[in-house]
């Protein structure tokens, strides 16, 4: 490990970006698993997608090609489509049940 000031002033290692991506992804997954509000859960998924995008861009940098940028562009488009449909679904759920608590949306049982 070089001395701290050098680390800070120099260029950032690529692995930092990847670790950040992993951290955000894990946060998103945690949000998905532990949050009860449907919209928050959905946003956690978006956070995960963002984390993935960061990985794509970072890998693109490493490989010196811009394919990763295109992938994350596709991811955005897909996320947009998902958001449109997902929010519409959330609207119908709310209309039918007047709640956004995921635990209360559980009429389907044996």
């Amino acid at each position: 490990m070089p001395p701290l000031p050098a680390v800070i002033h120099g260029p950032a290692p690529l692995s930092w970006y990847l670790i950040l991506s992993a951290v955000l992804f894990a946060l998103g997954a945690a949000g998905f698993l532990f949050r009860r509000n449907i919209i928050t859960v959905f946003m956690s998924i978006e956070l995960m997608l963002n984390a993935v995008n960061l990985s794509f861009i970072a890998f693109s940098y490493k490989l010196g090609r811009n394919d990763g940028h295109i992938f994350s562009f596709f991811v955005m488009v897909v996320a947009a489509a998902e958001a449109a449909v997902g929010l519409a679904i959330i609207l119908t759920v709310f209309k039918n049940r007047q709640t956004l608590e995921i635990d209360e949306v559980s009429s389907l049982k044996n």
């Binding site: 290692p13 692995s15 990847l18 670790i19 997954a29």
Partner: peptide, 23 residues
């Protein structure tokens, strides 16, 4: 759990990316 996942991930990534790869 999240901390553990992050830890494992970070370890893997540290191994994956060569130290020379800098941005």
């Amino acid at each position: 759990m999240v901390a553990a996942i992050i830890g494992i991930g970070a370890y893997l990534i540290q191994r994956a990316a060569p130290r020379t790869a800098e941005v």
